[in-house]
Design a protein around this nucleic acid. Structure first.
Length: 627
DNA sequence: AGGGGAACTTAGCAAGGCGCAG
DNA sequence: CTGCGCCTTGCTAAGTTCCCCT
C-alpha cells in the first residue's frame, strides 16, 4: 500500500490493526543479535570468568554497529536542496498505529452509584475508568476538572445512565481504581521473560509502523501511535481540564466509503506531516511527523541556526535602531522598540494573543499586562528596576528583577499611565506587527530568532570563559554544564526538583565524607611509608610501598574531586532543566567544536538520540567553528 | 488589518529501563 | 546480584509563525 500524506478524521473506521501479541518467529536483524546474549546472561552455561572477554566482544560489537550505522546514515546535508516549498518527492508509509479498542471490565469489578452497583455501558464505563485511573492525582479534586469531566462523561452515557447518575460525588470508582493499580503492579512484577516478550512485540510495531520511506531513505517517524482517548490534562489553571479527549476513529457508523479507510489521501509534498487529525477538546490539528533525526527536521533545524547566525552579524545595528526607536514620536514604534528590548535582553517569547477562557492565562512579551510588571526607581541599590512576575508558556513563572535604561524606564511609566492592572502593557503592539518589522530588517527574522541567537551566543561565550584545556575531564564537563545552565536560566527553563532530590544529595554528601576520611587515612599512611624509607635509606621494597601509597592517595583524590564536582553540578541544577535548551536553542556545532578543542568525547555531551538528531552538525563541524 | 486555521517548534512531566554501587 | 537512583524516552500540551480569507 502506498500512501502519500494521509489525512484522517476521528470519525473514520479504524485501520486494520495488527495484533502485536500474535506469535511470529521470524525475528531478524538487530533483535537476532540481542536475544541470545540476554539468554546467556540468565543461564550462565559456562564459567563466569568469560565475562571479561564477553564485555570486550560486546564493546567491539557496539563499535562495529555504530560504524555500520554511520555508514548507512543518509548524509542529506551533502545533497542539493529541493526547490522552495517541496519537502519530498517520494513518500511511503504504513499509516499510524491505533490504540486497542476498549474492553469491558471484568464482572467482579464494580462501579457504585449512591452505594449501589451500576453496570455501565461500554462508552460510559470507558470514560469512568479514565477518571478512576487518576483518582490519586490532584487533578480529580479540582472543581474545574470534576465539572468538565462530569459534563463530558454524561454525554457518553445512555439515557438511563444519565437519568440515574446526576451527582459526581455519589460516584464510587474505588474498585476500578484498585483494579488499575493492580494492573500496574502486575506489569511491574512481570518476569524478565515476560518483559522481553512485551518488548519484542513493541519492537515489531515499531518496525512495522515506526518508519517511512522518504526519497529512498528509511526514516524514523516521531509519533506514529495515535493518541489514545482520555481526560484532557491541561497545564496550570486550564479551563478545559477534565474534558474528554475522544478516541480517534469511528464511533460513527455512517462513514467511510467502502474500501477507503481514510478521510482523504493527499499527495501534498509541500508538507512534512504523514497524517493529521482534529482533536476535539481544543479543536486543533494534530500531526504525525518524523523523528528529529530525519532529514525534514534536521534541515529545518540547521536553517534555524543559520538565521540566528545571520542575526549575529547584524544585531548591533538592530540594537542601535531599537534604542533610537524608543525615542520615536509614534507610540506604536516606541512600544515595539521596548518590547524588542525585552525580547533581546531577556529572551522573552513573542507572546501571541490567546482566546480568553480557552486556555490557561499565560503571557509572553507582546501580551504582557500592566499587572505583570512593577517599576522601582530604586531597588537594592540599583536604579530603574523592572520587576517581572508572570506566567509564561506551560504556566512556568517568570520572575526577574532587571535594571533597564532610563529611557526604557520612562517609557514603561508612560505605557502604564491611566491603565488598569488587567490592561495590555503594549496596547499598540502585537506579534504580527513586531514580526513584520523584524522581517523587514532581515529576511527570516522573527521574535523567536532572538531567543535562539542569544542562547547560542551565550553558550559560546560561556564555554570560552569557563573552560580550560588543563582541567580534568570532570571539570571540563562541569564547565559545559554551567555554560548550558547559563542559557537555561536565560530562557527560564525550569523543572520541579525531583522528589528524591534532598535524599540523594544527602547520600552523595555522606559518600563524599566517607571518601574524605579514606583520603586522610591514605595520606597518613603515605607519610608513614615515606618516613620508613628515610629511616632505612633507600630500601627498594619500601620505595615500592611509597609508590603504591602515592597511587592510592591520587586515586582517592581523583574520586573525591569527581564526586565533589558532581555534587556542585547537581546542586546548581536543582530547579533548572538543561534539556530544552540543549535540544532546541543551542547550535550543536558549538558543542561539537568545543568537544574537539577540549578533547572531550562527544558522547559525554550528547546521548545517542541527541547525536542522531545533530548528525549533520557532528559530521560537518571542525574545531574552528564559530557561531 | 485582522481573524482564524494550518503547520511546525518548543515544553515539562512521568514511566520505565539501565547502569552502577554496595 | 540486586536494589535504587538517574537518564532516556515517550507523550502530548502549548507555544510561534505564516498564510488565506473576508
Amino acid at each position: 500500500m502506498l500512501f502519500a500524506a494521509l489525512r484522517l478524521n476521528r470519525k473514520l473506521k479504524e485501520k486494520d490493526e495488527a495484533d502485536p501479541r500474535t506469535e511470529n518467529n521470524t525475528k531478524e536483524g538487530i533483535k537476532k543479535e540481542k536475544k541470545p546474549k540476554k539468554e546467556e546472561a540468565e543461564h550462565p552455561v559456562t564459567t563466569k570468568k568469560k565475562s571479561k572477554e564477553e564485555i570486550e566482544a560486546a564493546k567491539a560489537l557496539k563499535i562495529k554497529k555504530r560504524e555500520e550505522e554511520e555508514q548507512q546514515r543518509w548524509r542529506w546535508w551533502e545533497e542539493d536542496k529541493y526547490e522552495d516549498g517541496v519537502k519530498w518527492k517520494f513518500l511511503e508509509h504504513r499509516g499510524p498505529f491505533f490504540p486497542p479498542e476498549y474492553q469491558h471490565l471484568p464482572d467482579n469489578v464494580n462501579f457504585y452509584y449512591n452505594g449501589k452497583v451500576v453496570k455501565l455501558g461500554l462508552a460510559a464505563e470507558e470514560v469512568a475508568l479514565f477518571f478512576a485511573q487518576m483518582l490519586d492525582h490532584e487533578y480529580t479534586t479540582k472543581d474545574v476538572f470534576r465539572n468538565n469531566f462530569f459534563k463530558d462523561w454524561r454525554k457518553e452515557m445512555t439515557l438511563e445512565e444519565r437519568v440515574l447518575i446526576s451527582d459526581l460525588n455519589k460516584c464510587d470508582f474505588r474498585e476500578l481504581h484498585t483494579m488499575h493499580k493492580e494492573k500496574v503492579e502486575a506489569r511491574k512484577a512481570m518476569s524478565k521473560e515476560e518483559k522481553l516478550v512485551m518488548k519484542e512485540a513493541n519492537q515489531k510495531i515499531v518496525e512495522e509502523y515506526g518508519f517511512c520511506i522518504l526519497d529512498h531513505h528509511r526514516e524514523r517517524i516521531g509519533n506514529f501511535k495515535i493518541e489514545p482517548p482520555g481526560l484532557f490534562r491541561g497545564r496550570g489553571e486550564h479551563p478545559k481540564q477534565g474534558m474528554l479527549k475522544k478516541r480517534i476513529q469511528s464511533e460513527h457508523e455512517w462513514l467511510p466509503p467502502a474500501g477507503h479507510h481514510w478521510k482523504e489521501v493527499r499527495h501534498d509534498n509541500t508538507v512534512t506531516w504523514l497524517a493529521s487529525w482534529t482533536e476535539n477538546v481544543q479543536g486543533s490539528c494534530k500531526y504525525v511527523m518524523l523523528n528529529p533525526s530525519s532529514k525534514l527536521k534536521g534541515e529545518k533545524d540547521w536553517e534555524k541556526y543559520e538565521v540566528a547566525r545571520r542575526l549575529k552579524s547584524c544585531v548591533n545595528g538592530i540594537r542601535q535602531q531599537y534604542q533610537q526607536d524608543i525615542k520615536s514620536k509614534q507610540m506604536e514604534i516606541r512600544q515595539r522598540a521596548v518590547a524588542l528590548y525585552f525580547i533581546d535582553k531577556l529572551a522573552l517569547r513573542a507572546g501571541n494573543e490567546k482566546e480568553e477562557g480557552e486556555t490557561a492565562d499565560t503571557v509572553g512579551c507582546c501580551s504582557l499586562r500592566v499587572e505583570h510588571i512593577t517599576l522601582h526607581d530604586l531597588l537594592e541599590d540599583k536604579e530603574c528596576v523592572v520587576e517581572f512576575d508572570f506566567l509564561g508558556k506551560d504556566c512556568i513563572r517568570y520572575y526577574n528583577k532587571v535594571p533597564v535604561t532610563k529611557r526604557v524606564f520612562k517609557n514603561l511609566k508612560l505605557f502604564m499611565k491611566n491603565k488598569e492592572p488587567g490592561d495590555d502593557l503594549f496596547d499598540r503592539l502585537n506579534t504580527c506587527l513586531l514580526n513584520k518589522h523584524l522581517s523587514s530588517l532581515l529576511p527570516g527574522l522573527t521574535a523567536k530568532v532572538f531567543r535562539t541567537f542569544n542562547a547560542s551566543i551565550t553558550l559560546q561565550e560561556q564555554l570560552q570563559q569557563l573552560s580550560n584545556m588543563t582541567d580534568k575531564p570532570a571539570e571540563k564537563l562541569l564547565s559545559y554544564n554551567r555554560a548550558n545552565r547559563a542559557v537555561a536560566v536565560l530562557c527560564n527553563h525550569q523543572r520541579v526538583p525531583p522528589k528524591t532530590f534532598d535524599q540523594s544529595m544527602a547520600n552523595l554528601q555522606s559518600k563524599i565524607d566517607g571518601r574524605r576520611e579514606q583520603l586522610a587515612l591514605a595520606k597518613s599512611e603515605l607519610k608513614l611509608a615515606k618516613k620508613e624509607v628515610k629511616a632505612h635509606s633507600s630500601d627498594s621494597k619500601l620505595q615500592a610501598v611509597v609508590e603504591r601509597k602515592k597511587k592510592a592517595v591520587q586515586r582517592c583524590e581523583e574520586q573525591l574531586m569527581k564526586m565533589e564536582v558532581q555534587a556542585t553540578n547537581r546542586e546548581e541544577n536543582k530547579q533548572i532543566a538543561l534539556g530544552t535548551s540543549k535540544l532546541n536553542y543551542l547550535d550543536p556545532r558549538i558543542s561539537v567544536a568545543w568537544c574537539k578543542n577540549m578533547e572531550v568525547p562527544l558522547d559525554k555531551i550528547y546521548n545517542k538520540s541527541q547525536r542522531d538528531k545533530f548528525a549533520w552538525a557532528v559530521d560537518m563541524t571542525g574545531a574552528d567553528f564559530l557561531f
